[in-house]
Design a protein around this nucleic acid. Structure first.
Lengths: 337, 337
DNA sequence: TTGAAAGCGCTAACAC
DNA sequence: GTGTTAGCGCTTTCAA
């Protein structure tokens, strides 16, 4: 059986209060500190975080709910987030809800029972219904990547400037003379889908180009979806001369579709993609793309959560918007008149 | 403030024991059960798992320590593992140690403090030194993917039959008439590296082929490493006619190297790879490869851990070896004499 | 600075 | 079946 503070008290002849103070960084007489340290070593004492949690009413655990763990964009965020959090002695419980709103809600409940100190969520359910219980339980919530309208001003968030990212990419294509620009989006009601669409529309309108519905496709953020969407776009009677594909998986699928159809980039079609993931920089080396600061997102999440936690409820919800970068490759070219 | 069982007791007029029994699935008079359910609803009662943990001495938390979260093979294991575990009301704390033995050891300590019920570890440190504290604390340990020699018969494990997988792949190449077979391995001291090497050597020797050291390269399980290794192999004076590349990342890197050198598969070189990851089945569609049952590995891990936990220390350490599958594509061909 | 004692919310004897 | 009670291992007043 593991030894407890009581054992230490007996061993050292000190009181519980002194020991507790020692472990929590308080001042203890030099002689006693040595006494304690010796006893700790002798008895292999390890503080019991569970008991401490019960008393302090904080578990130092953050629950993280994500749509998919098998997604490089998400794991790189989690990875950097967990790094910062653990360095501050917070543990991370990850719940993968497989993009299923029902599972997502269950995960919230699961984590509430566990009395997590905070919740970080890349939301699957765009209505935010799943977070109601956490809101009522007064658990700090942090949204990542996807805002939820009904929770505006109620919870903090770390996002990227989707509208700008999208309009910047599209403007780039417009500048090159393209007018027929295909857009491949994620699933319809998602925050990122809607904001990226908005950026696209803005850019077109600012350039005096009337958006054409046929050029807008939804690819579910999956590779198959991207393949399908691009397939449809290039099959149009009056196909686009340029493509903006708004996530990594769809980009891969899209590239395949182009390959299968013998369409060469940028000779036949200009393409701007999304997300640079190290692993694949080699495969399609020269794509022009919108890069999100994954590591920065994770870090900001961790820090914002830490800040919220240490403010003990006085913190006002805050939205941190990180900017993306358009890195130019060789997958776009000017449209000859 | 959240309500407690005491509040429920006051509300219902029942004793704590009755309530506790109710929540733990015991028999309660029908009238009382209704009383309790009404009170739970009214007071928004949520059981406090922390208090329960303190009393029962089990946290229902499993600590998982992995070398990298940004690795599709690993996340798919974790994903299926977490799924099963959460269904049994166990939470998973994931610690990514970035393939750093120091961080790995810290993670073990971190999790011990948290009083996790069990530890699942894809080990970075092949000596197993990091697990000593957990062993002493009598925490059930489960190794995944990589065995540790010094812990033999002391801890359970879920692995694949690396030797067989490797020798099967190499035999396949031998059958096709290849004698000069290049092997790209992971980092030198890793379990998987050593066992896959052993399988390679066995297959060669069984076929009466003397292994050639120049054909054996270490690619660190990274894409760059794979690129480099393949680059070296094809640059040899007497280059191999076939390649066996023992993980997914190195395989990608290797394919790139071949591409850059204008080497066509299988015309110029036969290749067998490792791990099928859905996302990329489209990119290199017809590779012959060794497939590991990732989902099965995760599931087996979860079940074995659950079993160990419910046996309350009476369970004998057990190694579960799952088999791989060699799926034939079109990346190999018979060597013409 | 230190010690005694109360209590965090729950479970599990034990007695009824 | 149900109630009473004593902890689980810690933190934290309050006095000394």
């Amino acid at each position: 059986m593991a030894s407890t503070m009581k054992d230490l008290a007996r061993e050292t002849g000190l009181g519980l209060a002194t020991l507790s103070k020692y472990f929590n960084g308080g001042n203890v007489r030099e002689k006693n500190r040595r006494l304690i340290e010796a006893a700790v070593k002798k008895l292999h004492y390890v503080p019991n975080e569970v008991a401490r949690s019960l008393k302090t009413r904080q578990t130092r655990v953050i629950g993280v709910i994500i749509p998919e763990l098998s997604n490089a964009f998400i794991t790189s965020i989690i990875s950097s987030m967990e790094d910062v959090l653990r360095r501050h002695d917070y543990a991370v419980i990850v719940c993968d809800c497989r993009s299923d709103p029902k599972r997502e809600k269950e995960a919230v409940e699961f984590l509430i029972h566990r009395r997590v100190d905070g919740l970080i969520n890349m939301a699957t359910d765009p209505t935010g219904a799943h977070l109601k219980a956490a809101l009522e339980a007064n658990i700090p919530i942090l949204l990542v990547d996807r805002l939820i309208k009904t929770l505006r001003n109620k919870v903090s968030a770390v996002i990227i400037d989707n509208e700008f990212a999208s309009s910047q990419a599209v403007s780039k294509l417009l500048d090159l003379g393209h007018r027929k620009i295909g857009l491949v989006l994620g699933s319809p009601r998602l925050y990122t889908t809607e904001t990226r669409l908005a950026g696209y529309l803005n850019a077109l309108r600012n350039a005096g180009v009337e958006p054409d519905e046929r050029y807008i496709r939804y690819g579910d953020y999956t590779m198959d979806g991207g393949y399908q969407a691009v397939q449809e776009l290039i099959g149009l009677e009056d196909p686009p001369t340029a493509l903006f594909i708004t996530n990594f998986e769809m980009m891969l699928g899209g590239m395949l579709a182009l390959q299968h159809n013998g369409i060469e980039i940028p000779r036949d079609l200009s393409v701007i993609g999304f997300d640079k993931l190290e692993l694949f920089s080699g495969i399609f080396p020269n794509l022009t793309l919108v890069r999100q600061p994954q590591l920065g997102i994770g870090r900001e999440c961790a820090n914002l959560m830490l800040e919220t936690l240490s403010s003990k409820g006085t913190a006002v919800p805050r939205v941190i918007t990180l900017s993306t970068e358009l890195t130019e490759g060789t997958s776009t070219r000017a449209l000859e008149p």
